[in-house]
Computed example of a mutant assay.
Amino acid sequence: MKNTSTRLLLSCAAIGVAGGILFVVNSYVGGTVNAVVPMLYGLTLGVYFVPGAIAQFLFRRGGVALLVAVISGLVSAAFQPLGFGAALIAVGIGAVQELPFLIARYRYWPIWLFVVGAAFSGIVLAFGMYRLVGSRDLDVVGAVVLVAGSVLSPIVFTFVALALARALAATGVARGLARPVDDRAAATARRAPARRRR
């Protein structure tokens, strides 16, 4: 992350700690759902996308989803059954959340790009959940429900995260930290004088 500030790092840390607590609660809820109704387990996975999406929407800076995911994973690792594996999963999710915006060179932050990233993540999760749970423990209907829940859950929870981020932004918490939603024109204008100087 370029041009980081102490305030940005502390804000990401606060979101990360809150996310870590959310991850711990969800690990037990998800574990219970997986033990009782495994076909619905996919619906619980989207929770892991909430902290990163909040940070990205609030600050619109590269790397914040990954930073928040690392903090959330480390906070939750000591308090859930997966241990350090939970931190690795959180880091993977944070990295995937960065991808659509990395492709856009962190200059364009529309809502649809959040949805595209969540949908891509959901497809990856659905494949993993089918391999881990659906293919051996569920019939065809159960596997379809598991896969559909795994695809939809990140999208639904991303929208929840965006609603929470809007509420936080309205309090002014990101004032002075957030970049523009569309910085492409400004980036082009900054490059033009450099070309003329050559």
Rank of each mutant, 00 (worst) to 15 (best):
V33A: 04
A53I: 02
P81C: 04
G31C: 08
I71Q: 13
V70L: 15
L45V: 05
N34T: 06
V37P: 01
I71Y: 01
Y41A: 15
L45A: 11
L43Q: 04
Y48N: 08
S27L: 10
Y41C: 05
L45P: 01
S76V: 03
P38V: 04
I21M: 15
V37Y: 03
A65I: 02
A55C: 12
P81D: 12
G20T: 06
T32E: 11
L45Q: 10
F59S: 04
N34V: 02
G52H: 13
V25G: 11
V75E: 00
L74C: 12
I54Q: 05
Q56W: 06
A53Q: 13
L67A: 10
Q80Y: 10
N34G: 07
N26M: 12
V50N: 04
L58Q: 04
S27M: 09
Y48G: 11
F59P: 09
G20F: 14
R60L: 10
T44I: 07
Q56P: 05
L45R: 06
F79C: 13
A55Y: 05
Y28H: 05
N34Q: 14
G63L: 12
I21L: 15
Y48D: 01
L40K: 03
Q56C: 11
N34A: 08
T44R: 06
V70H: 12
L67K: 00
V68M: 05
F49M: 04
A53N: 13
N26H: 13
I54P: 02
V29S: 07
N26F: 13
F79S: 14
G63Y: 09
V24Y: 13
Y41E: 03
G30P: 00
N34I: 00
G62H: 02
P38H: 05
V75F: 07
Y28D: 13
I71V: 14
V64K: 00
A18G: 03
S76L: 07
F23S: 12
M39D: 09
G19Y: 11
V68F: 08
T44Y: 03
V68P: 02
S27P: 00
R61V: 15
L40Q: 05
V37N: 02
S72C: 10
A18M: 08
Y41I: 03
G63E: 00
A65G: 10
G42Y: 02
A69L: 03
T32Q: 13
V25N: 07
A53L: 06
I71W: 05
L22K: 04
G42T: 01
V33Y: 00
L67C: 14
V29K: 12
N26Q: 08
A65C: 10
P81W: 13
G30I: 05
G30K: 09
G62P: 01
L22N: 08
